[in-house]
């Protein structure tokens, strides 16, 4: 009898997860954080020609409200610190989409002293969108990939971040020296 209940419980849980995934896939709220230059094509993807809102996507004001963090292009060291803050503030489940070649391997900034080379060392990436800069078609395609990923459970970056937190944190500290933001304001 006990096993039966556990079985039933599992099924219920799975059913609930399935329903949740359906809603999550169809209502993606992006964080309005233009970390780099690829953000310039986002307004185009949002406005009349491509209209992201058809897919249920929209911009949101703060990390707490958002589901998707867009890393639009290169990440300077200074931005990476703030992106980590933003990512950790978002409530789970959360997804991260990286635009352009710069978060993959540095792109044209492979030798720049202020730009990181690989984003997946510091934060888990769910979808990469290629192109410098990605055209709105590519952006929409990437979001479709993310939606598919949510539906078939492959977009699980937030779980990976939770499970391998130590490893990510070690990489972050190695490259950034210190995670705490220190600027004129925080003196």
């Amino acid at each position: 009898m006990g096993e039966g209940i556990i079985e039933k419980d599992k099924k219920l849980k799975e059913g609930w997860e399935g329903i949740s995934r359906f809603f999550r896939a169809n209502s993606l709220w992006m964080l309005m954080y233009c970390t780099g230059c690829c953000a310039i094509e986002l307004p185009q993807a949002m406005t009349s020609r491509y209209d992201m809102e058809r897919l249920g996507m929209g911009p949101m004001a703060t990390p707490r409200q958002a589901d998707v963090l867009l890393v639009t292009g290169y990440l300077s060291v200074k931005t990476l610190r703030r992106v980590i803050y933003a990512y950790e503030q978002m409530s789970t489940p959360k997804y991260l989409v990286a635009f352009g070649p710069c978060p993959i391997n540095g792109g044209i900034y492979y030798d720049a002293y202020a730009v990181i080379n690989r984003l997946d060392q510091y934060l888990p990436v769910d979808v990469y969108i290629a192109g410098c800069m990605p055209k709105p078609e590519a952006v929409m395609n990437g979001f479709q990939d993310l939606i598919d990923g949510i539906k078939n459970k492959t977009a699980d970056g937030w779980k990976r971040y939770r499970d391998n937190y130590e490893w990510y944190r070690k990489n972050q500290i190695e490259s950034l020296g210190e995670l705490r933001i220190k600027d004129e304001f925080h003196e």
Partner: peptide
């Protein structure tokens, strides 16, 4: 000058938020 979301989008938003932590 856009197409706009589906008419039941608001339901999906609310239920999605309720399934989040």
């Amino acid at each position: 000058k856009r197409y706009g979301p589906k008419f039941y989008q608001e339901f999906r938003d609310i239920f999605k938020l309720l399934t989040k932590t």
